[in-house]
Amino acid sequence: MIPIHYYLILSAVMFITGVVGVLTRRNAIIIFMCIELMLNSVNLTFVAFSSYLGNVDGQMFVFFVMAVAAAEAAVGLAIVIALFRNKQTVNINDVNILKW
């Protein structure tokens, strides 16, 4: 059998990959996809604990995380489209009107 910490370490590596992507990339859509990657790595932790503890609650949380991710995808991509319509770019360095 596979011990649980294999799954948890895989989840940590994937989460950090997403963090590096958010910190280094400037394309808003790629940053958006990196957030999806981080959400998925946390889902992996939920499912791993759910199976090893024999408790269904972890898988229910994954279900709700996916619902929130779908809502986030719809709203986030609508924001990207509105951004592109106003600025003709998705480079987040060019979008700084809230920065002072």
Binding site: M1, P3, G54, V56, Q59
Partner: peptide, 16 residues
């Protein structure tokens, strides 16, 4: 704290 978790729970097949 993860020391005991090397096996799936016995009911892991039916909860999924």
């Amino acid at each position: 704290s993860l020391a005991g978790m090397t096996e799936f729970a016995p009911n892991s097949v039916e909860i999924g």
